[in-house]
Amino acid sequence: MSAPSALRHMKFETVADGVALVTFARPEVKNAFNRLMMDEALAIVDELAAGYPARWRAVVVCGEGDNYCCGGDLEMFREMLGQPRHAVHAFIARFHQWALAWDALPMPTLAVMHGPVVGGGVPQGLICDLRYAAENTVVHFNFMHIGLVPDMGSHFIVPSLVGVGRAYELMLAGEPIDAAEGLRLGLFTKVLPTREEALAAATKRASVIAAVPPDVVAHSKRLLRNARHSSLSETVAQEVACQADRFLDPVFAEKIAGFFAKRARRAS
């Protein structure tokens, strides 16, 4: 599936060499996801994967308007009340495809979060490899307050960032966390004063990443992902295999030759 030619609830553009920008663009409802928005989001993921690495080697995701995303549209949820279990299960599974597909992208993903970020919007941001935030960002796992459990991979993502004990407190008590506390806990990579500054910083970082040989970045991202559920010995074995491939790659030989050539010039 390719990205629709006329997106209604999402924006998708190239903002720098090798860098794509994905924007949640439903600000009138705080960028809440409905069915069409999810269809568009999944189509964009397909487009990103198909365009890697020739067109895109890093992707930034942000929200339009006053906040990043407030998760699923409650109007849509209300429509599902009373439906048979198999229909509800299929509906929820469809939404969770995004988390799996986004996490599986070979290129690094960078979130730019701002304003109140609640419900499913929280893991949609935290699942990204790097997470930039504006100072007015407040994340709130409010699932419990409406009778739901955190989802979109929350039970995997949050403990990996802050530890199991703190994850219990964040997800079960559902207390809001501001940008400063989120940075201290490790939810955020960096906090900037405004959304615009956070977006500029994330785009700049994405451009740096996009300039690195893409297979090197993809190898490292895969190792980091696999290490979540691998032992040290398994991770080391994967690193050895990847590094052996790198040593045999012409790009590595060129970099080494360039290093010694530069050192020889300095010495002469």
Score class of each variant (00 low, 15 high):
173 A>W: 04
189 T>D: 05
77 F>N: 15
70 C>V: 13
54 A>K: 11
13 E>C: 09
148 L>N: 08
188 F>P: 06
155 H>L: 14
48 L>F: 07
27 P>F: 11
174 G>D: 02
31 N>A: 04
61 V>D: 01
12 F>I: 09
21 L>I: 10
6 A>C: 03
60 V>T: 07
40 E>S: 02
218 A>W: 01
180 A>H: 04
27 P>W: 12
33 F>R: 08
57 R>C: 03
51 G>D: 09
102 W>P: 01
263 R>I: 09
84 P>Q: 08
63 G>R: 07
156 F>G: 10
173 A>F: 07
60 V>D: 10
243 Q>N: 12
12 F>W: 11
175 E>R: 12
115 G>S: 03
8 R>F: 10
98 W>T: 01
113 M>E: 02
186 G>R: 04
122 V>M: 04
243 Q>K: 06
81 L>R: 15
76 M>A: 15
61 V>Q: 09
149 V>A: 15
100 L>P: 00
195 R>S: 04
18 G>Y: 07
161 L>H: 02
3 A>S: 14
200 A>L: 15
49 A>Y: 00
9 H>I: 05
112 V>H: 06
61 V>H: 10
197 E>V: 07
85 R>I: 15
234 E>V: 00
20 A>Q: 07
91 F>P: 11
55 R>P: 00
122 V>Q: 05
130 L>D: 06
244 A>L: 10
100 L>Q: 06
215 D>I: 03
103 D>Q: 00
173 A>E: 10
105 L>Y: 01
94 R>P: 06
102 W>G: 02
164 V>Y: 07
253 A>M: 13
100 L>A: 11
105 L>W: 00
246 R>W: 08
167 A>S: 13
149 V>S: 15
128 C>D: 00
200 A>V: 13
171 M>C: 07
63 G>L: 05
187 L>S: 03
135 E>G: 06
94 R>C: 04
57 R>Q: 10
256 I>Q: 12
34 N>Y: 09
34 N>Q: 11
47 E>H: 10
135 E>A: 15
178 D>H: 08
196 E>C: 06
155 H>G: 12
241 A>L: 08
136 N>K: 07
224 L>N: 10
236 V>E: 13
219 H>W: 03
6 A>R: 09
239 E>K: 01
37 M>H: 09
9 H>F: 15
154 S>T: 10
32 A>C: 13
23 T>Q: 15
112 V>K: 05
251 V>K: 06
151 D>S: 14
186 G>M: 01
129 D>T: 00
39 D>N: 14
85 R>C: 12
236 V>F: 07
156 F>L: 10
187 L>A: 01
30 K>N: 14
24 F>D: 04
59 V>H: 01
20 A>F: 04
206 A>K: 03
54 A>S: 09
225 R>Q: 11
196 E>T: 12
247 F>K: 12
112 V>T: 05
